[in-house]
């Protein structure tokens, strides 16, 4: 009994933190999503009106949702592929390999910061580094932020550039693959590409799955990049749902509506996560798996 209490005592800071900073706000935001609440007066129950407005007459929500899904569906595969590619290279025993591993990881430490977003703005600005290089090579300068077709791409690149954490996890997975499998495949005449596709990829699918879920959830929550670089523009082409939630809550003081958007976003993330878990039965292989 005493040991149980002691265990609970050790756990209590986490449990209290989870309750106060996660579960209670989680529940309260669900309640608020059914209210009209402007922060200055008490919430007024409004039933489903926020949700009805969201799905029937809110053009901004539709635009923002489309942009968010596009952003996630571009960013996540691109980032995972790039992280795996770099991890594969860094898995070789090259000279100064530890330096390169550290150097490639650094962007993910800095990546989410305001300073990097500001730097990104300067790199892709009209007279920024990228356009200087392009014009230097004889190409036309590109309006990265002013053209709605390009703006989302620059924000996407910022996210992909922060591939370090996914890369480190991939690297650990690659190093755990049994080398004898590659040797056996080589004896059977398999090329490097064949070994990668038929040995490496299946054996690291649990890590691909883990990275997929983590990156997808993080991508849906992206805020700093578009907020600092484009403020969601032009023409809302980078107006991700977290920016819309923020604007509704703190610029338009409509906390009820903002909560409703947040819950729609939560449901989307949850649905895609469940879909990923369901599909994982078909493509993720764990140690001791009896499937052929």
């Amino acid at each position: 009994m005493r040991q149980r209490l002691l265990g609970l005592a050790y756990l209590s800071p986490y449990i209290i933190g989870l309750l106060v900073f996660t579960m209670i706000p989680f529940g309260v935001s669900f309640y608020l999503s059914f209210t009209d609440y402007n922060l200055m007066s008490s919430p007024k129950w409004s039933g489903l009106s926020n949700y009805i407005e969201l799905f029937t007459s809110d053009r901004t929500f539709r635009k923002s949702l489309t942009v968010t899904l596009l952003y996630v569906f571009i960013t996540v595969p691109l980032k995972l592929a790039f992280a795996l590619f770099i991890a594969y290279i860094l898995n070789y025993r090259l000279r100064f390999i530890n330096f390169f591993r550290t150097a490639f990881y650094v962007p993910s430490i800095l990546g989410g910061s305001i300073a990097i977003a500001v730097l990104w703005r300067y790199i892709f600005a009209g007279e920024g580094l990228v356009n200087m290089m392009l014009t230097g090579l004889g190409f036309e300068a590109v309006n990265w932020f002013g053209d709605p077709q390009n703006a989302l791409f620059t924000i996407t690149l910022l996210r992909c550039w922060q591939f370090g954490s996914a890369m480190v996890i991939f690297l650990a997975a690659l190093q755990s693959v049994d080398k004898s499998l590659y040797e056996a495949a080589a004896i059977d005449g398999a090329s490097k590409a064949h070994s990668f596709i038929f040995i490496t990829i299946p054996l690291i699918t649990p890590v691909i799955f883990f990275n997929l879920i983590m990156q997808m959830v993080q991508a849906f929550q992206e805020f700093n990049g578009p907020y600092i670089i484009t403020q969601g523009g032009p023409l809302k082409s980078t107006y991700l749902l977290p920016l819309y939630i923020y604007d509704e809550a703190f610029k338009r003081f409509d906390m009820g509506y903002a909560s409703a958007i947040a819950w729609v976003l939560f449901v989307i993330i949850m649905a895609l996560t469940l879909l990923a878990f369901w599909s994982s039965k078909k493509w993720v292989y764990y140690a001791g798996d009896k499937r052929n």
Partner: peptide, 16 residues
């Protein structure tokens, strides 16, 4: 506005 937006979210006094 399109040309203005090319600089990203930047104030006039920060522009070259």
């Amino acid at each position: 506005i399109e040309q203005e937006a090319a600089a990203g979210n930047q104030y006039l006094y920060e522009k070259r």
